[in-house]
Every structure is written in structure tokens, then in C-alpha cells.
Amino acid sequence: MNVAVTHFNYLAAVVLMMIGLYVLFSTGNLIKRMIGLALFQTSTALFYISLGKVSGGTAAIRIYADSPEARALAAQLDPAYVQQFGVGGVVYSNPLPHVLILTAIVVGVATLSVGLSIAVRIREAYGTVEAGEIEAVARVDAAGAGRGP
């Protein structure tokens, strides 16, 4: 099959990464930058989760506890496929990327809140959240007197 189809998920993740990076670097507004950063971070989730998907698989949240839905799904699949790739007669998607992305999402919200709190302090100290205007003020600061009398 065509790479654009078999690797569609990864390509979509790449496009979202590019959008996130573009938003991050093309704006001077600090809040919008944080939004771009958040978009960039979440696009890695798309990548990792796509890696762990197994066709015909189901969520590994009720393993060995008898789950009729999971068995019904497995019954639709080729028995040889279930035999080879399933566990106990049911095919599951890979749980490891899910765990990693849970971590990444939490890290993302932590970064977002710290970044925004710094942006709020910048607004209080400089009166603006536009990078260009902040730099102009900072240049004045740099030229200012240091060890005063």
C-alpha cells in the first residue's frame, strides 16, 4: 500500500508538529507562543499513540477480567491472527505508549502553567506581552545605570 496511507497517522502528527512550531516562532505574543508550544507538545502524543495501535486490538484495561465486548471483537478477526498476536484470545493495543503519553500530557500542563505565570509577571513588569515591545524596554534597561551613588 501507499506510504501516505499506511503511515498516515505519523504524517498527520508531523503536520501538527509543524503547525505548533510555526505558531511558536511566528508570533511575538507570549500567550500565543505558549499555545503553539502546547500544540507542539501534544503532537508527540499522536505519534506515540499511533505507534502502539494494533489493528483489531482493543484497550488493555480489562485484561483477564472477562470482557464480552473484547471477545466479540476478537471473534470477528482471523483466528490465526488472534492466536499469533493475541493474549488469552483477545488482541490488545500496546499499553506502554499510553503510559508514556500520560506522563507527557501532565508535563505539558505543568509547563503551560509555569510559562503563563511568568507571562503574567512580564505583563506586570513591562506592561505588555509582545516580545518586540519587551525587547525595546529591555534595551533601555541594559543601558541604564548600574552601581548608583
Partner: peptide
Amino acid sequence: EFGDPASPTNAHVGRRYLI
């Protein structure tokens, strides 16, 4: 390929967790 049950990701450590 997307969804490949035999990919390294899905065949190595990930599968051992399930088992």
C-alpha cells in the same frame, strides 16, 4: 506500518506487559 502487530514496539516489551 501503522497497526502492525509485529512491529518492534508492539512485539517486544509492550507485549510482555500484557502477558
